[in-house]
Design a binder for these strands. Structure first.
Lengths: 403, 403
DNA sequence: GAATAAAGTTCGGGCTTCGAACAAATAATG
DNA sequence: CATTATTTGTTCGAAGCCCGAACTTTATTC
């Protein structure tokens, strides 16, 4: 039940019918490929004739390709249809505070190139470098056409202006990334928060997530960000900042956060929090007076390595982080009751240790009616980059906006 | 951008086009009535001829009525079209732990009858009584047709089975309310959580909420429940329990809740919490040993009356409740960033005292990018009952489900 | 070689919107 | 008072789309 938006709607014409059915067909091929026209008829419920016409149009527009001929016990052999994965390319960019990764992808999120560069501290310098890297990448990987550039960022994008707002870990102030990169590359640019990108990635190219309509992605790095898919749609809120559960207080009078609030979830459960726990556990037993300055900040990656080696101090810090990760995830499970909750970040490397603690917190703090599956997403799956591809391509595969 | 659900979609036909445009027209009339066909043409962008045909159909189906003739400086006078508010009636039921209210409404949420009965402790007894009351109500208020029965409940409705699950304040176990009431009344029955009903009410018949796509309703009584509208759609989650932020811990090791968790928001900010604060503030100064049994439980309504009279103990209890109401609302503002957050419940009677405390907490605990308006909804507006009407009628006014 | 079966194509019918022409109704103008 | 301008609302053929039946194509089986 979707209310019609009278401020921004589109009346239907005969073309709308074709548009809808065409997209349904495209999605059916995407899921069931290789598939014959006859099977498409059965899946869609459209007439054989209609399927043929639409398939013809999709082939003419290079969305589909005719492939091999099938074998049946009797009768004329079907010609299989495939998605034409190389119809167009997509440039995916994953901006993280330390490094920025660039990729060239086809329509199936298969990457034909993957490279990275340091993320410049200065925003305008970053824009200039990124623009050049993208144009170089396009020149080095020529294709018939590029559909656009998708950029994942550790920050939020304002809904109307598409400007980057609230990106504390990058240290950039409010910023227009879209216009300069579009000018430099000549391609349309789509920006999205990293957690939202991960959520989109799972929605569009997740494994075994066919029936899933409600999905939450939690990115855990030096901050914590949440992306929400509800009713098969990304939730961005009124301004674009929906999902900042990382800045919800888990402990009302906890440590002060740079956002102004206290005891924010990300102050207690991010990578930075684990680093702090580790440092604190060193200084406290020493009992030194200038304890603060004694704290050696060990990078989170090192803590993970120590955990893998069984170091008890590192394990304790990780457990503390996992505990609060669990209480925060319990909040999301209780409040949003998604089918699936995906955890993204380096911490998934030690999920065998973290997962049970999280599961326990969720079990104790949410009731049985929420049946959320909590799933770690390894970095090898490239959730952010897959999300940028979905970001660029979704307009061709999503339901046409009726209202 | 709405992903197509390949497990449950509907291909488009020529009829789909008419269906879409017809609903757009119906909504345009609803918002702008009285309105001429010519103006509908301008608002919709459809051709004059198309508008005439669709209007004729809607009049034939009794959705619209022709009304007065307008006056223009020049030219032929337009015939105005109105919504035919009495096309069908709706029975609205608002179940609350103590009392259940029933109403007869027309399509404009105008109530032509309003009565109440005690809510029976026993579920099957309640079902029997409610069924009789509804049939009596229909007999006493004869209409051409009744569209259905909408029921608001302090609990959650499972998505697939439409059974009532998780209704702790009612004390009923899992229950099928829909089937027996449908059998008794012969009308389709729709069930919904009270907070979801309030959210729907504001979405469909809220004042000055035209452009609002993201909206959160918080019902505060002996429990706290949240209803979410995101992207102009109700969010129910995978099982139907989305919105149980009342059972998210605000204080991780706070008082034990019957849900099994500790320090739940509703343990700290519900009416029951204020009652507890008031009782505790009495017993503590006494310093008695058997302090627990000394606590006189004063009903929340009495506390409100005392607050209105300026009683300091009651004010202190209310302030404590308001403080936690604020921290919880800050969580919703930060995490969901809706355009509007509506607070429903008796506590809105003293909103001049509570509102500033809530606003302060939200200001201190959420960042400037969320611009949520926090609005109290008085009980005179009957948000729950208006929600039940929206619940029954929304299928005629919402966008047809394409996929 | 004929019968059977399945895939894919062709074509007329019905529905919908579009767009231009038309009819109806009213005020301003000479 | 008749004419003109203007606006509302209707009529009707054209174009686009899906449906459904009939047809063609291509294979296996008897």
């Amino acid at each position: 039940m979707h209310k019609i938006n009278l401020n921004k709607f589109q009346v239907a014409t005969n073309g709308t019918v074709r548009d809808i059915n065409s997209r349904i067909m495209l999605n059916l091929v995407r899921r069931h490929q290789p598939i014959s026209r006859a099977d498409l008829m059965r899946y869609s419920g459209l007439q054989r004739s209609t399927v043929s016409v639409i398939a013809g149009q999709l082939i003419a527009d290079r969305w589909l390709k005719e492939g091999a001929v099938g074998n049946l016990p009797r009768g004329r052999r079907p010609t299989f249809l495939h998605l034409n994965a190389d119809r167009c390319g997509v440039i995916g960019v994953d901006v993280q505070p330390a490094r920025t990764t660039l990729a060239v992808s086809n329509m199936d999120s298969q990457f034909s190139a993957l490279e990275s560069m340091p993320t410049a501290r200065d925003a305008s310098e970053f824009i200039a470098r990124l623009g050049h890297r993208i144009t170089d990448l396009i020149r080095a990987h020529p294709r018939k056409s590029y559909e656009g550039v998708g950029i994942s960022l550790p920050g939020r994008i304002e809904v109307g202006s598409e400007r980057l707002i609230f990106a504390p870990t990058l240290g950039w102030s409010e910023l227009d990334l879209k216009t300069p990169i579009e000018r430099e590359t000549g391609l349309p640019v789509k920006l999205e928060n990293a957690a939202n990108a991960c959520a989109l990635a799972e929605l569009w190219s997740g494994q075994h997530l066919d029936g899933v309509s409600n999905l939450v992605a939690v990115t855990v790095s030096d901050d914590i960000s949440v992306g929400m898919i509800m009713n098969r749609q990304l939730v961005r809120g009124s301004t674009g900042v929906a999902g900042e559960f990382g800045h919800v207080s888990q402990v009302l009078d906890g440590p002060k956060c740079r956002c102004g609030n206290s005891g924010c979830w990300e102050m207690l459960a991010s990578n930075a929090a684990a680093v702090r726990y580790y440092a604190e556990s060193a200084s406290v037993p020493k009992g030194a007076i200038g304890s603060k300055s004694d704290m050696a900040t060990v990078p989170f990656g090192d803590i993970l390595r120590l955990v893998e080696q069984g170091d008890p101090r590192a394990c304790k810090a990780l457990n503390q982080m996992a505990h609060y990760l669990g209480t925060g995830i319990a909040m999301l499970v209780t409040g949003l009751a998604p089918d699936v909750l995906i955890v993204v970040g380096e911490v998934t490397r030690v999920w065998d240790k973290v997962g049970p603690i999280v599961a326990d917190a969720v079990k104790r703090r949410s009731f049985t009616h929420a049946v959320t599956r909590i799933v770690p997403a390894g970095s090898e799956a490239q959730p952010r980059l897959r999300g940028t591809v979905a970001l660029v391509l979704q307009k061709h595969f999503s339901a046409p906006s009726i209202a």
